[in-house]
Structure formats: structure tokens, C-alpha cells
Amino acid sequence: MADDVILVADGVQRVFGGLTAVDVDHVEVPRGRITALIGPNGAGKTTLFNLLTGFDKPTEGSWSFDGHQLAGVPAHKVARYGMVRTFQLTKALSKMSVLDNMRLAAPDQSGERILTSLVPGTWRARERAVTEEAEALLERFNLAHMRDDYAGTLSGGQRKLLEMARALMAKPKMLMLDEPMAGVNPALVQSLLEHIKQLRTDGMTVLFVEHDMDVVMGISDQVVCMAEGQVISVGTPHHVGSDPKVIEAYLGLRRAVEFEEGYVEGHGG
């Protein structure tokens, strides 16, 4: 692909105790495309995600996003640079309203600073604009009717939608979705996939983690497959899907890796 590259990572390594969870030589994510990060359970996908977004610190390695060197940059700054993530176990803030969840994510709200927050005049206008934006997004994700409910009352699938919509409120350049389809009622999976495709149409870069290969075939432009912490195959969905190394990883390694990796991710997630 001759596309412009938005994210490049080199030599990223993460060791837990004596166990190497992630050891990625090189990986690139093209701008404006959908990239799927696949691999059998516990291949180190979520750990890599945590590293790239600043939620975990690598043992070594460097990566740059949209012109910013990100190694050692704290998570909230990574988000402000435009790389916004969601979580495998959704982090909808269940004790806040759906609308507040959305408004929270908006950038440039001066009312979030302690002194200006005391003068509502300085942030009311921005709050109104943010609320309108939030309502439009909630409409698009079919959540408008729940806007004043506690997020805790949403179903699992709705929470995934809310988290995706909330991430969009943060005005990302690249959206990192950690298993957006996990635990979602099959009827909703199709709708979620449509939303992701729509994001590409709008010009967004998407990187998403998924361990079910069938799901990613339809919508990805590029697939990166990991196993045992390493990238073993990169290319079009068709190319990766027929790569013998990938097939072997899915069939052969599954049982062997599951235990150890589940152990590591239990701590990391």
C-alpha cells in the first residue's frame, strides 16, 4: 500500500517477569484505512495496544504517531495527540449519564480547569456546542433516547456503541478499538461493523483488535496477525488469511499459549 502512514512502531518489547509478552520488530498503520490486529487468544494484542496508547510502559522500543514520538508519553497526552482508544471490557462510566459520558470526552473545555470552572460564563457556550455535538453522535449511534439515563443501565452492546461514540467526541485522528465485537449480541455485530465502515468513509483511521478472523475479513484494508507477542504476518485480509503461519498459530498454538498469556493479561488489562 502506498498510503500515507500514520503510526509506525519499531522494536517494541514488553517483558513481564521473565515472560516476553510483546516483541514487535516493525509495524505500520496506514492513514484513513481500517487495520485489524488479529491473533489467537493471548497473542499480546491488548498488551501492544496498552503500550501504543501509553497505558503500559515498554521494556524498550519506539513509535511515532502523526509526527509525534510517543515512547514515554503518558496516556492522556497520547489521547490529546489524537490516538484515542476503547477498552476490551467497556469502560462506560456507569454512574454518569450517557450524555455526561459524551460531554466528558470533548476537548478544549475551559470549564475543566479549576479556576475557570468557577465562572460558568467562560464555559457555558462551549458546553452548549459540546452538547449539540454529543446529541448528534448519540443520534447516529441510536442512543439518543437514553441520553439522560445512567450509562450503567445500558446493555452490553449499547455500552460498546457509547464507548465508540464517546471516543469520537474526543476528535481523534485514529481510533483504537479493543475487541469492539466481544460480548456483543450477534444481532448488533453487523451494526457495529457498519459503524466502523462509516468511520472510514468519514476519513478516520481505525485500528481494531479482534481474535475472530472471520469478523475482520469483510471490513479490513490491512490485517496484522500476532502470535506469541510477535507479528507473524501482515497484508490484505486474503493474504493473511491464507498464510500457513497464521493458520498454524490459530490451530496449533492456541492451547499452549492460552494459559500463560491469560495470566499476563489478567495483570495488564
Partner: peptide
């Protein structure tokens, strides 16, 4: 972590 992922320090 949710707050952090949305850019809050």
C-alpha cells in the same frame, strides 16, 4: 483509565 483515555490528566 477511562478518564485518561479521553485525554484527562
Amino acid at each position: 483509565d477511562a478518564a485518561r483515555s479521553l485525554g484527562k490528566n
